[in-house]
Amino acid sequence: MIGTFIHVFKQESLLGLYSGLSASLLRQLTYSTTRFGVYEELKADLTTPKSSPSFPALIAMASASGFLGGIAGNPADVLNVRMQHDAALPEAGRRNYKNAIDGLVRMTREEGWKSLFRGVWPNSMRAVLMTTSQLASYDGFKRVLIEHTQLTDNLTTHFSASFLAGFVATTVCSPVDVIKTRIMSSHESKGLRKLLVDVYKVEGVGWMFRGWVPSFIRLGPHTIATFLFLEQHKKMYRRLKHLDEV
Rank of each mutant, 00 (worst) to 15 (best):
P214Q: 01
M236V: 04
A72T: 12
S137C: 03
M184D: 06
L14N: 02
Y138E: 07
R182Q: 08
G16D: 06
E147V: 10
S160I: 07
T47G: 00
G16I: 06
P175E: 04
L196K: 02
F9V: 14
K142A: 02
A62L: 02
Y18L: 15
G119W: 00
L14Q: 11
L135R: 04
R143M: 14
A100D: 01
K235F: 06
V128N: 01
Y39D: 05
M83H: 00
G93Y: 01
N123G: 10
L228K: 04
K180D: 12
P122E: 06
T108K: 11
K234A: 14
G93Q: 15
T4V: 09
Q150Y: 14
F9P: 13
L219A: 12
D45A: 14
G3Q: 14
L46H: 07
H242D: 13
Y31T: 08
L129T: 09
V205N: 13
E188Q: 13
L42N: 02
G70W: 10
S186Y: 04
M236T: 14
L46T: 09
V144D: 06
K201I: 12
F167D: 15
T152K: 15
T181K: 12
M236N: 12
P175W: 00
A64G: 14
G66I: 04
L68M: 10
F55E: 07
H233M: 14
V172Q: 03
F229I: 07
I59F: 01
G211F: 10
T47D: 03
G204P: 01
L219D: 15
G3N: 12
G3L: 11
G140E: 04
K235D: 06
R239E: 15
T181Q: 09
R35G: 10
T47Y: 00
T170F: 05
T108D: 00
P175G: 05
F9N: 15
